[in-house]
Design a protein around this nucleic acid. Structure first.
Length: 426
RNA sequence: GGAGGGAUGGCCGAGUGGACGAAGGCGACGGUCUUGAAAACCGUAGCGGUGAAAGCCGCCGGGGGUUCAAAUCCCUCUCCCUCCGCCA
């Protein structure tokens, strides 16, 4: 959400920011509403001031036992006008608010201009993509042939786009969760948190999923709760409506949760395997930062996420999203993409973003530089560290052997009871 | 699901429609004292809006109402707690 005062101060900057996202927006509408709102507020304030003053006189007279009917009559007239003006003010404020919450964040200056994902910029490529001396299988075929991947029965249990794994493939998933959390806690200095998987409307609003992206969410109507689409939602909202101390920043959390996404409008895309499903596991990194260091924090967030891929020796690249591909709440985003032979391409396993104060303003998360100073909004950041299902897919495809088995990356073996290879029905 | 009880500042906790942004305590911060610390004593402190500023306005869970005037009265919603039932 945007700050109307900043827009008022530098409307051109704001307008250009939206234009970079390809949004033509009539900014004057905002400025007019703002103007009108402030005029009304001042008028109401003056009336209230008068009413308060006269009411005090009434109290004074009554205490002395004197007659106050004359003043009471006078104040009554003022009192009648106030609700009228307040209704008008509320109406305008509502309109202004609706506008402000519906506009996406402004891209950071370092974000390249572009129309869509084709204009994204690759900034790092790491590792060699594997050359196979046999025809490699996609991960879903590997999994099914091994008898460890069962999307058909998962559809029977729930619906299509749900998946199920058995045995060492299920264990691999669980191992990856522990492996990733351990690294982020022990090496990267994050604090582990296990949050609720269902959250209320306020939380969904705070991180920007509501009201715009309701169709993407699973909703439990009876209790008016939403299944989280990412741990970003509960974890960022941990500090909703709080004022933090500057010396406790940055706050760094790591969180494992399942994620639930309706994937509305993605019919026919990535229909096979673990790439696009309604429920998947993810380890998420969330930071609360000082405004002046948030872009350094973004860089280290990317490194933290990438350290997992390096530990697993999976080839990846880091892509800087262009203005046209940037998410609604983000000011700057790097995607980490892992090599998948089935796609003959890199596929996103992590998305690391700096939201600046966009979410903090929605969720009302502030900090104070010291006791006396005025509260300011923090900057929030998050990134997957990593998406588990897609990492499983990447391990299967990158570590497959000629006979359709899968080697387990060295670093992961301690988490797999020392198992070196996934074989049929294990 | 049934019955009852609550929601006041960072925390605890008073509050008779008018002197209440709100007693008192704890905690916090600054100072005095001290070699240092503790104790004691003195002092300072909420959030938002509006305004160039002084100031003004609003905020006692949310929303609405009564009144010249609401933390206080009325309506409504939400959340929390206790007991019973169910349950990993």
């Amino acid at each position: 959400m945007h700050d109307i005062r900043l827009i008022r101060e530098s409307p051109e900057r704001f307008k250009k920011g939206l234009e970079r996202r390809g949004i033509e927006y009539d900014i004057n509408r905002l400025l007019e509403l703002d103007e009108e709102r402030r005029k009304l507020i001042q008028e109401v304030q003056e009336l209230k001031e008068k009413r308060n003053r006269l009411s005090k006189e009434v109290a004074e007279l009554k205490r002395k036992g004197e007659n106050a009917t004359q003043i009471i009559e006078e104040v009554r007239g003022i009192g009648d006008r106030i609700p009228e003006l307040e209704t008008k003010t509320d109406e305008i404020e509502r309109k202004l608010y609706e506008e402000l919450i519906s506009l996406p964040n402004i891209p950071h200056e370092s974000v390249p201009d572009g129309k869509d994902e084709n204009d994204n910029v690759t900034v790092i490529t790491w590792g060699e993509t594997r050359k196979f001396n046999f025809e490699p299988l996609p991960h879903w075929e590997l999994g099914e042939r091994l008898g460890l991947f069962d999307p058909r029965r998962a559809s029977k249990l729930a619906k299509s786009r749900f998946v199920m794994t058995y045995g060492s493939m299920a264990q691999l998933e669980r191992a990856l969760v522990n492996f990733m959390i351990d690294i982020h806690v022990k090496k990267n200095g994050y604090r582990e948190v296990l949050p609720p998987f269902l959250v209320n409307e306020d939380s969904m609003f705070g991180t920007g999923q509501l009201p715009k992206f309701k169709d993407e969410l699973f909703w439990v109507e009876r209790d008016n709760l939403y299944l989280i689409p990412t741990a970003e939602v509960p974890v960022t909202n941990i500090h909703r409506d709080e004022i933090l101390a500057a010396d406790e920043l940055p706050l760094k959390y790591v969180s494992y949760t399942p994620c639930f996404r309706r994937e509305a409008g993605s019919y026919g895309k990535d229909t096979k395997g673990l790439i696009r499903v309604h429920q998947f596991n993810k380890v998420e990194l969330v930071k609360f930062s000082l405004p002046e260091t948030s872009y350094e924090e973004l860089e280290s967030l990317v490194k933290d996420a990438a350290s997992i891929l390096e530990a697993l020796e999976l080839p990846y690249r880091v892509v800087l999203l262009c203005t046209g591909d940037l998410g609604f709440s983000s000011a700057k985003t790097y995607d980490l993409e892992v090599w998948l032979s089935s796609y003959n391409n890199f596929k996103e396993v992590s998305s690391c973003s700096n939201f600046e104060d966009f979410q903090a303003r929605r969720a009302n998360i502030k900090f104070k530089r010291d006791k006396k100073s005025k509260p300011e909004f923090v900057h929030t950041l998050n990134g997957s560290g990593l998406a588990i299902g897609r990492t499983v897919a990447a391990i299967l495809e990158n570590y497959q052997t000629k006979n359709g088995e899968v080697e387990i990356p060295e670093a992961l073996r301690p988490y797999m009871d020392g198992l070196k290879k996934i074989t049929a029905q294990v």
